[in-house]
């Protein structure tokens, strides 16, 4: 029935009078609408369902578990209110991990961006040699962070290559991974080696939007390289800088794999990050409620930063649009 009406409406016989009575066409339109709605639903729902089951519900579950003392096994978790959150401030392991994470995020962000932007300035012009340099600076990033951590721990361990050289030269074994302060420094160094290529590429993309005629004009007017950079390049890169900084922060706040393989969180827990402690508390120590409280805090901190990104980006976009 619907078919017939439809073919009458669009087909060559559209002029045929009797079938076009409004009373008749109405249900057919509704039929078409229903069908279109079903088609739309079949495009939206599978993705939405998967997203809800695997991400939205787990986030909710995390919040709920953080209010309980669940160990992962017992039948019903005891409700402890905000107890886990208050405990966060009293457990020294958590505080150490928070400090470590913030150090990594802070120092890492500064280094990733300083090196990313610095090298971008050196290699952003298009040439075969520059693209080789770019590839060489970027390549560690295609490896898994786990492999990178194991590789560096083999190179920097007490019997590793670097220490072989140091001892041959008459020095003492350097505690790259066995002294807390050294280990944190090493961890940040390896993270930077592994990741600054990405910042480099983003900065190169940004530099391509800096108006070259202005740069040339400034140089003709006798501006030094530093002046050109400081007063021309950097201001027009502002949005890119902001994005890079906040993205580095967000990425570094969840540092995990590289800790597992490079230091295993040691020595004496000095390189345990928030993400590392969350997983070891939750699964290793059967403290799911407590681990969930840490997760929620990490999620909120990351979320706030993300919000900052979009705010700042909105501003930057406007500035660029002018």
């Amino acid at each position: 029935m619907t078919r017939n009406l439809l073919s009458v409406r669009t087909g060559p016989a559209a002029g045929a009078g009797p079938v076009r009575r409004p009373g008749r066409t109405f249900p057919s339109r509704r039929g078409i609408a229903t069908r279109a709605r079903l088609a739309t639903a079949s495009m939206v729902l599978p993705a939405l369902a998967l997203f809800v089951v695997m991400i939205v519900i787990p986030v909710g579950l995390s919040v709920y578990l953080s209010l309980t003392d669940w160990d992962g096994y017992s039948a019903d978790p005891g409700f402890v209110g905000l107890g886990n959150y208050f405990r966060l401030f009293r457990v020294s392991e958590v505080l150490t991990a928070a400090v470590t994470t913030l150090i990594i995020a802070g120092a890492g962000t500064v280094l990733l961006n300083a090196l990313g932007l610095g090298f971008a300035m050196l290699v952003h012009r298009k040439s075969r040699l520059n693209s080789t340099f770019r590839a060489v600076l970027f390549y560690p990033h295609v490896l898994s962070a786990l492999v990178v951590g194991f590789l560096w721990s083999a190179l920097l361990g007490t019997t590793g290559v670097v220490n072989t050289f140091v001892t041959e030269a008459g020095g003492e074994v350097l505690p790259f991974l066995s002294d807390p302060t050294w280990a944190r420094t090493t961890l940040i160094g390896v993270i930077v080696w592994f990741g600054f290529g990405v910042n480099l590429v983003l900065y190169i993309a940004g530099l391509q939007t800096v108006p070259q005629d202005l740069v040339e004009a400034a140089q003709i007017d006798g501006a030094s390289r530093w002046q050109t950079f400081r007063h021309l390049t950097l201001p027009s890169l502002a949005p890119v800088v902001t994005v890079n900084i906040v993205l580095s922060l967000v990425t570094l706040l969840k540092t995990y794999d590289i800790v597992v393989s490079l230091t295993g969180g040691g020595p004496a827990g000095s390189t345990q990050t928030a993400a590392y402690l969350i997983l070891s508390d939750s699964f290793g120590n059967s403290a799911l409620g407590f681990g969930s409280a840490q997760s929620v805090v990490l999620m909120v901190v990351t979320g706030l930063l993300a919000l900052t990104v979009s705010r700042l980006r909105a501003g930057a976009d406007e500035a660029v649009a002018k």
């Binding site: 787990p58 986030v59 995390s62 997760s295 990351t302 979320g303």
Partner: peptide
């Protein structure tokens, strides 16, 4: 969803 660290999801996802 892009800003949720996946390690944070792991615990609840195990139970899901």
């Amino acid at each position: 969803g892009t800003f949720i660290p996946s390690q944070v999801l792991l615990i609840p996802v195990v139970y899901t």
